[in-house]
Amino acid sequence: MVKHLFLVFVAFFIFIDLGKGQITFGMDSIMLQRFDFEDKQIAEFFDRFNYKEPVKFANNLKSTRARNIIALINLKDTGLSHSPETLNFLNLVSNDSNEVHLGFYDENWYAISHCSFSYLNKNCLIDIILKPEAGLDSSYRWVIFDVKSDIFPAPTKANRNITFINPMDHEVGFSELSKALIKRNSIFQYTSDSYRADYLSAFLIMVKSGILKFNQINFVDFQFLQVKGWEFTVKNFNRSDYNSGWLISSIKKMTETEKHDYIKNHFMNNL
């Protein structure tokens, strides 16, 4: 309860000061005031999370690691800021003896690039999941890890006893294969039980062939799974508020087994 009130207390200081700015100055002045406080880059998010860069609070509120991390939470989401899970997470990560630090070189964090494409003359949304990958020479690059989209639906294996190629169809030159290819809709049902759809390969071929035309990246967010027992997401909140920039938008408890299953189910299409 005390910690809950503390979180609200910090939020109050953050918001009240911006209110003053809005009354006294023009928009450019607000941007100027906000610049020092907002979380401008993911690198800055790491530095503030790790308490390498203490946040300068309004009204001379003293910076601590816990307050630094509170300032990295989307405080306008009361469901998130009032959640017991958020407080438990905060307790864990702000306690220096637990040595919880984040960095670019961590494994198990992902960027999700929410993109707009044109497919068959219609606009479609595709999430491209990227992750940093290390080279042999300590170099790094972001690589495309997977894609998610409604245009890549989970293949149904229903009615496999109705739609199939009969066992003697080879004697007639696979006439039922021809029918399946012409019919198209049930084509996934003609695959082996061991078949798993690889949508990333399909996506790459569609882009390369021009079937899928890129329009733009709408926005990017990040998913962090490297804190033991927890998963959280970071989104960019571009708003006239000190509590803005790259902020934690959700926090969930997740065991290491659940994380493994999550990555397998959400990022790797069960491959």
Partner: peptide
Amino acid sequence: YKIYLGTQFVKGPNGYYYG
């Protein structure tokens, strides 16, 4: 008005450092 320079520079496959 302002410049914020990120503290991290990460080596890319071409040997350049990116910040």
